[in-house]
Design a protein around this nucleic acid. Structure first.
Lengths: 184, 184
DNA sequence: TTTGGCATGTAATCCGTTACATGATTAG
DNA sequence: CTAATCATGTAACGGATTACATGCCAAA
């Protein structure tokens, strides 16, 4: 059980409120998608396992909006303990695989206009993210419960700073590559 | 064959010079470890597969320094073509899993001093990296072949900017958490 | 003589995505 | 009627790490 990191996101989210598998997926995409992602094929089995181990409790309710029965999961006291214990452990350093940087690193075998266009695509995505985060800042004070504000703002700030750095890099790189006179 | 990204790092490195599996691992750790990592259990099988497909050629030489026979791999023209084709394709967005940010995000269930110490550890690592990159900048002009300089400096710059942003975040976060009066 | 660095490889295992299968409700 | 959205789940596959197995040479 060296990793199994999926369970911790799930327990973390359930520590705020009961959610369905579907909800969990949406919450991840919407709030921490910047640094974490999960698929249904991972969420549902893990949820079932957590239930078997008594870390979450399942309730079958009727569908809220939209069809089909709905399984709502709530964290148990044992679940909270497990989560707290995990939070206390020193986090493992992130391992990344950044294809854009890999292509950049090998770009001596790549025509400059193509590298430029890779970076332009990246830049556009990062700018969109930056705009998204700009809204986020205002939302915190408005909608988030008081005890969650610190965590939210720290996380959001990380997103903002990293994205700003990526934009900075991309702009600099484009300038160094002779900003798009020959292409597009 | 949706992913199989390991082969591209290997072909990329071999496009600069012939290397052994062991060398490849070392090169990755030393130059692009910041955004890419590979294990032997991945490198050797992929190397064998690339050889079967004629993208690299294997030569068994005597050991250079230190014991045992040594398998040196060189890229073939077909290998260069395949690499070039991959470089031209738009890179897929990176998928990250950042445990520190996850713990930060759920830190309302975590005592502040512990979060602080997680961030302090992270900060120390990032500062070490920053020092390492500071040297790298000087190295580029000195030792890297001319046609690789642009790629090197772009990649290095990415590392510097990202690490600077992470340091910025960590310092800010520590300040917000009430900088370590109670612990060590 | 033991440790560390050079060096290659396989097996077990698991983490995770993708694709598939199903199904109800509501809005257009 | 059809598309979108809510919703749950499994199966197949593959990507990747970890642990294990082996072995030689040089320096301390």
């Amino acid at each position: 059980m060296r990793h199994h990191r999926t369970q911790w996101v799930i327990l973390g989210l359930l520590s705020h409120e009961p959610l369905s598998g579907y909800d969990i997926r949406r919450h991840i995409d919407e709030s921490i998608g910047f640094f974490w992602r999960e698929s249904y094929g991972q969420i549902y089995p893990v949820l079932a396992r957590l239930a078997r181990r008594g870390l979450v409790r399942r309730t079958v309710t009727a569908a809220a909006r939209g069809g089909r029965r709905r399984h709502s999961y709530a964290i148990t006291p044992a679940g909270r303990d497990a989560l707290a214990a995990w939070l206390r452990e020193p986090p493992e350093p992130e391992i990344v695989r950044n294809e854009l940087l890999l292509k950049t690193f090998f770009s001596d075998a790549l025509a400059a206009p193509i590298l430029r266009s890779h970076i332009q695509t990246f830049l556009a995505r990062q700018r969109a993210l930056a705009r998204y985060y700009a809204h986020g800042a205002a939302e915190i004070d408005a909608v988030k419960p008081a005890r969650r504000r610190r965590a939210w703002s720290l996380t959001l700030r990380a997103g903002q700073l990293i994205v700003a750095a990526r934009i900075h890099w991309a702009e600099e790189a484009l300038a160094a590559l002779g900003n798009g006179r020959s292409s597009s």
